[in-house]
Design a protein around this nucleic acid. Structure first.
Lengths: 112, 112
DNA sequence: CCCTTATTTAACAAATATGTTAAATAAGGT
DNA sequence: ACCTTATTTAACATATTTGTTAAATAAGGG
């Protein structure tokens, strides 16, 4: 799977999305902390972390018996770059829509 | 599923990702054109289009017997906004990594 | 060396996703 | 009304995903 698509696949799952947001907020955390936060089992979290690792969304570092996980900023940049690559399409479209809305207001103004 | 996560889920599939890129490149297209471009069956494409619609990634417009599909720019903006919301995390991290790399170069310079 | 803690792997069941073909629906032309 | 074209829905098989519990692995302490 392409880098970008596997990143999207990884983030489409709620558990994994929450893990990524948590790691961005709190920084590097041991797997155990992510398990305690979650309602699902350790093995399930462990497999989610593997999916995130394989998608390049997180990296793992050993410290004694613990495994510390952190978000790889490059993965976020990959997504950002994709939106930027297509900005010409969507930003222009949104502006045009806003303008059309304004023009409509002139014809049939609302309370605000 | 949250808006953002269902957008990610929709884009994690290659067929759907390709459809979205095609529609951004060429603009509004009838379902039939998307079928002819693809190696998979009409019904399969039709179901992919439904997933994209339900995720808010595309919108459908009827014109006679044809159904014209187009990417909804808001969906792209939703993704862009998410990366921007977290830019403080990933951009700073990347800069720090670049700086660390530079510092290392000073200690053990390479051929370039 | 054994015990505890931290984490992953294995084995399996249930749910979800994706493709296929055949049938249904809808619009338009003759 | 009937036929053609465009698209979707239905029914079904298969593959993938995701959760569970039990067992395996790895590091460190006594």
């Amino acid at each position: 799977m392409s880098d970008l698509r596997s990143v999207f696949a990884a983030l489409s799952d709620e558990t994994r999305f929450d893990i990524v947001e948590r790691l961005m907020k709190d920084g590097e955390l041991p797997a155990g902390d992510l398990v305690s936060d979650s309602t699902i089992s350790g093995p399930a979290i462990s497999r989610h972390l593997k999916v995130l690792r394989e998608a390049g969304l997180v990296e793992q570092r050993a410290e004694g018996t613990r495994r510390l996980y952190a978000v790889r900023p490059q993965a976020l940049k990959t997504i950002s770059d994709w939106t930027i690559d297509h900005r010409a399409f969507w930003e222009v479209s949104l502006n045009r829509m806003a303008a059309a809305l304004e023009a409509e207001e002139d014809i049939c103004p609302t309370s605000d």
